[in-house]
Design a protein around this nucleic acid. Structure first.
Lengths: 193, 193
DNA sequence: ACCTGAACACCGTTCAAGT
DNA sequence: ACCTGAACACCGTTCAAGT
């Protein structure tokens, strides 16, 4: 393990200023917020931004790492409070709400579940995938979820539900309905089902 | 009805060149292809592009109108060849394939089913929505599709399935599987269902 | 009525010079 | 080792001048 050298004081301060400015800018303008503007807001040169965050993706991940961790932690809470099936549904619902309502988060969540996505093994992707794996497996053992589903497939389908809900009203009032449709299927329900 | 004045000969020629260049550029670089490059390829000034197509969206719609009409026509063919349930499934499958595989088409299909989308009442949006309405209603009358579904909801969910499939492999090998999951639901299948 | 292309504003990215 | 900010390339959009 190579020692991680501590940052020089000015570097550390600039890093934190950049992160703070990025969080604000992404929240305000979405994932395509101007990098130049972020550097300006942080009071640093453009080159300094690139030194700390060579790609927009890396800056996005750093800006949203708290959200990802919160989603992961939330899975544990729900698993303690609810039955496996209910916990999975409740968590997917919150995931979809965050996907739509937290500006800039959607593309990051998308790449966290994309095939070969660069985020897949970062802290961000890992926490969401780990949470999904635990909830999905518990629901499968209870027999309330198809056994042939991979956790990442459930995440991808939830991303699809969020996308569909976003098309419906841009806010997320249809998330519950579309999630239910996904779980129950589009075929007519059996009487007494 | 105001008479539509025929275009001046040079204007008409430029319009067609722009459209041809746009089709090629969108196919090559996706929906964000450079407008400046399109004008250059067409051999016209940038201003001429804006005169004919004031927004990127309008140029996109013009470039993909054939695809939309083909999708609409395809619904009729499938309705003649298959049962209502099968026709709907087959058409949604083709729709998802086009969503993923035809470069530049996805965002246009998205806005065609978005709430209050500007495309909703253009020829593009109308042909897809009309096709979906006929297939959905036929399937509902056969009793193979939930009666509480609006056609546009089915289109939105299909867009979600396409998105999920795109995350899976970028091509569409999972479309059939994810569509089936949507129709049958994520709950375990009943024995003999 | 339509076209051209220069002009402007904005953004991402790099890099020489500075500390 | 890190920072600054000018420089470059690229793009979208507008508009004065031209036919």
């Amino acid at each position: 393990m190579p020692q991680v050298r501590p940052m020089r004081a000015d570097a550390r301060r600039n890093y934190e200023r950049l992160l703070k400015a990025a969080v604000a800018a992404f929240a305000e303008h979405g994932e395509n917020a101007s990098l130049d503007d972020i550097a300006k807001r942080a009071g640093v040169g453009a080159g300094t931004l690139y030194r700390h965050f060579p790609t927009r993706q890396e800056l996005l991940e750093a800006a949203y790492v708290d959200h990802f961790q919160a989603l992961g932690a939330r899975a544990g809470e729900l698993a303690r409070e609810l039955s496996p099936g209910e916990a999975l549904m409740a968590w997917l619902n919150e995931l979809c709400v965050a996907t739509i309502q937290v500006r800039g988060l959607k593309s990051l969540l998308g790449s966290a579940v994309a095939d070969g996505g660069s985020v897949a093994r970062t802290a961000c992707g890992a926490s969401v995938q780990g949470a999904a794996a635990r909830l999905v497996e518990a629901a499968q053992q209870e027999g309330v979820l198809r056994a042939d589903l991979e956790p990442i497939e459930v995440l991808r389908l939830a991303h699809g539900v969020a996308t569909a809900s976003e098309l419906a009203d841009g806010q997320g009032r249809e998330i519950q309905r579309y999630l239910t449709l996904l779980v129950e299927g589009l075929r007519p329900q059996q009487a007494g089902g």
